[in-house]
Simulated scan of single mutants.
Amino acid sequence: MPHAYRIAVVESDDLIRQLIVQWLTEAGHTVTVAQPGTLADLQVDLVIANVSSPRSAAPLVRRLKALQHVPLILLSARLGRGQGASAPLIGLLGATAVLPKPFTHGELMQAVETAMA
Rank of each mutant, 00 (worst) to 15 (best):
L64M: 04
A4M: 11
G37E: 15
M109F: 00
D41I: 02
I20W: 00
G37Q: 15
A115E: 04
L75K: 06
R78M: 12
A66T: 14
K65N: 09
S52A: 15
R17L: 11
A8C: 03
E11Y: 02
A49G: 01
R6F: 01
A57R: 00
V33W: 01
D41G: 10
D41E: 15
Q110L: 12
D41Y: 05
Y5H: 12
V44Q: 11
A8M: 05
L39C: 07
L24D: 03
R81M: 08
L79Y: 07
A111N: 05
L24T: 01
T32S: 13
T38Q: 13
Q43D: 14
T38F: 00
L42W: 00
S53Y: 09
A115I: 04
P36A: 05
Q22W: 12
A8L: 04
V44G: 11
G91A: 15
V31F: 08
S56V: 12
A4K: 11
P36C: 09
A66N: 13
L99H: 08
A57H: 02
M116D: 06
I7K: 03
H69K: 14
K65R: 15
M1S: 14
L24F: 06
K101R: 15
T32C: 06
G82L: 12
R81K: 15
P100G: 13
L89A: 08
L99Q: 05
R55C: 07
A77L: 02
P88C: 10
V21A: 10
A87K: 14
I16Y: 01
P88G: 08
A117Q: 14
L72C: 02
V31L: 10
G84D: 06
S52P: 02
G80I: 06
G80R: 13
Q22E: 15
